[in-house]
C-alpha cells in the first residue's frame, strides 16, 4: 500500500478516537437513562467515517442515516452541538427537534441525516445534481448501511446518478446485518459492489476496519469523481459492536454469536492503526495517552455544554 503522510495518519487516529469516545460517552448516558432519545451507536465502524471524510473539503456534501454521529464528527461537525442534540436540548444542532437520528450542520455541508432507511441516498445524489448544474467541483457522499441496499430507492438512485453523471460517492457500510437480519437472509446475491458495478459505476469492496485502506481507496474514488463527475461506490465490510439501537452488546437475543462479536472486536480499527503507528515509531504510548486525554477534555466540555442547555419550549408549533 502507498505511503500515507504522517500528519494524515495522526488525523485519522484522532478522528476515530473522537468518534469512539463520544459514542462511549453516549453509551454510558444511555445506560444511566440520562439520554431518553433512541441512539444508534457507531462503535467499531469508525475507520469508515474517518477514512472517507479525511478526503473531503468543507464544501463537499455529506448525507447520512440514523447511525450518523461518526460521519458528522469526521466531517468536522461541532461535538458540543451533537451532544446537546442527543440530549434534545435547545442548544443542540437541531435545537432539540431532531434528536440523535437528525443531525445537521449546514456550515460544513453536512446537510441532513434521515431516520428512514435509504432516505438520504437520493438526496445526496440531488446535492450532486446541484453541483453539476452550478458547474462546481464538489463531491457528495451518501453514507448508508447494507440494509439500505434492500430498498428500491437505492437502485433507482444508482441508476439515475450513473445516467445523469452525478458527482456522488456512495459509501455502503456493510456491517452484515439489517437490525437483526443477516445479509444472506435478505439478498440473493450478497456482493453489493458487484451488483452496483453492473450500472457502470466504479466500485470497490474493502475491509472497512482498515482505516488506511479506506482512506487511500476513498481518495482514489473521490479524485476520480471530482475530475469526471461520475458516481462511484465504496463498499466497506465492517461490524457494529453494540446493538442496532442502544448501548447493549446484543449477544443473547438470537441473531448473532458472541464469538463473532469477539472476532470483530479484535479487528478494532483504532487499535489496528495505533499498533501500526507504534511499530513504525510514529507514535509512542505517552503520546497516545495525551491524545486520549485531549479528546476526553473535549467530551467533558460537551457534557458541560449540554448541561447548560435548556429544554426547548414553544408557545405555538
Amino acid at each position: 500500500m502507498e505511503e500515507i503522510n504522517i500528519m494524515i495518519l495522526m488525523s485519522l487516529l484522532k478522528s476515530m478516537l473522537k468518534i469512539r469516545l463520544v459514542e462511549e460517552y453516549f453509551a454510558e448516558k444511555l445506560t444511566s437513562r440520562e439520554i431518553r432519545c433512541p441512539v444508534h451507536l457507531y462503535v467499531g465502524q469508525e475507520g469508515i467515517a474517518a477514512g472517507v471524510c479525511q478526503n473531503l473539503r468543507t464544501d463537499d456534501y455529506v448525507l447520512s442515516t440514523h447511525r450518523s454521529h461518526g460521519h458528522y464528527i469526521a466531517k468536522g461537525g461541532d461535538v458540543n452541538a451533537l451532544v446537546a442534540e442527543v440530549f434534545c436540548k435547545e442548544n443542540g444542532c437541531s435545537h432539540g427537534y431532531g434528536g440523535s437520528m437528525h443531525i445537521v450542520d449546514p456550515k460544513i455541508n453536512y446537510l441532513a441525516s434521515s431516520a428512514i432507511v435509504a432516505g438520504s441516498i437520493p438526496i445526496a445524489a440531488g446535492t450532486g445534481l446541484a453541483s453539476k448544474l452550478k458547474n462546481e467541483d464538489r463531491v457528495s457522499v451518501a453514507f448508508f448501511g447494507d440494509g439500505a441496499t434492500d430498498e428500491g430507492v437505492f437502485w433507482e438512485t444508482v441508476n439515475v446518478a450513473a445516467l445523469l453523471e452525478l458527482p456522488v460517492l456512495f459509501v455502503c457500510e456493510n456491517n452484515l446485518f439489517s437490525t437483526h437480519m443477516p445479509i444472506a437472509l435478505r439478498q440473493a446475491e450478497i456482493d453489493i459492489h458487484k451488483k452496483v458495478s453492473a450500472f457502470g459505476l466504479e466500485t470497490a469492496r474493502i475491509e472497512g476496519n482498515d482505516v488506511e485502506k479506506v482512506y487511500t481507496t476513498a481518495r482514489g474514488l473521490i479524485e476520480r469523481i471530482r475530475a469526471t463527475r461520475k458516481p462511484a461506490l465504496l463498499e466497506c465490510l465492517t461490524f457494529r459492536w453494540l446493538a442496532h439501537v442502544g448501548p447493549d452488546p446484543d449477544l443473547d437475543i438470537g441473531y448473532r454469536k458472541k464469538v463473532d462479536v469477539e472476532k470483530w472486536r479484535k479487528k478494532c480499527p483504532i487499535q489496528g492503526l495505533k499498533n501500526r503507528l507504534l511499530e513504525r515509531g510514529i507514535l509512542s504510548e505517552p503520546e497516545y495517552g495525551r491524545l486520549v486525554g485531549e479528546i476526553e477534555t473535549l467530551v467533558g466540555d460537551a457534557d458541560r455544554f449540554r448541561r447548560a442547555g435548556r429544554d426547548p419550549s414553544v408557545t405555538e408549533f
Binding site: L63, P122, I123, A125, L129, A130, K134, E156
Partner: peptide, 15 residues
C-alpha cells in the same frame, strides 16, 4: 421516489 429525492437534495444545495 429517487427522482423526488434528487430534487430535494438539489433544493438543499441551493437550487
Amino acid at each position: 421516489n429517487g427522482v423526488t429525492g434528487l430534487a430535494i437534495g438539489a433544493a438543499l444545495a441551493g437550487m
